[in-house]
Amino acid sequence: MDSVVVNHIVKTYGDVRALTDISLTVEAGELFGLIGPDGAGKTTLFRILTTLLLPDSGSALVCGLDVAKDWREIRTRVGYMPGRFSLYQDLSVEENLSFFATVFNTTVKENYDLIRDIYVQIEPFKNRRAGKLSGGMKQKLALCCALIHRPDVLLLDEPTTGVDPVSRVEFWDMLDRLKKQGIGILVSTPYMDEASRCDRIALMRDGRCFTTGSPGHVCQSFQKLVYSVRSANMYKLLADVRSWPGTYACYTFGDSHHLTLKDDAPNLENLETCLKEKGHTDVLLNPVKPGVEDCFMELGAN
């Protein structure tokens, strides 16, 4: 059975269209990523799937149960990590965990095997108040609390936002282990580089889902060739590449700029000559494979 099925969901707040015709499916044991910035509608979708909001139209099933009718049952079957840290700041690590176990009518002991790998990392601080934990540790505790009743589906709203790159990698490693136990996971993130950790992704922006598929498939669907451009003066290079007539778009990408061309662009030797005339040295121009971030930025352009 599919973990999550979303059919043509629409949600508006007054004049604001938060979600426009969203459809997607998360299979059991699948790690599905919603990739998009603030304001894309990700949190609204999570709130509908956790039965905290009703859609205006369309339907959704979680563990085969209807979000509008079977809300009581769904709430016992999902583990939810809201975007905002929502544990009790003035309870200790251990107290938070046993509180959530009690709410779901179970004990920490009963489901300890599911959280062991994660909990051992924060156990040395089990008497510390949750509010005194750092970002990475808060996320680990929140994940333990979301798992303690052995849910069939995990819904994680931006679990890695504001978390440093090392803790982020650790967090995704944990999700990998959880999906192998058959848990379907829907996770949202504004970090484009995390898309590669998902089985499938949907690119979301302004309440719409654009491309859906495996990260590789999404990148293959990118229509344009992408080149990386470098020179000794990267800041000046950006303006100079943008002013070249053949440039469709040019954006910074870490230590290089990514360039896409207009259909009628002159050949690249012309660009190289142009750049040298403008005083650039050490010019390097190479084709590169587009990544999820290239694809996402193209959505913005359209």
Partner: peptide
């Protein structure tokens, strides 16, 4: 202090152009 967290990729780059 983490000025671009959660900001979309295009705006994030425009932000850095303001920094430059």
């Amino acid at each position: 202090d983490e000025p671009t967290g959660g900001v979309d990729p295009v705006t994030r780059r425009q932000f850095w152009e303001l920094i430059y």
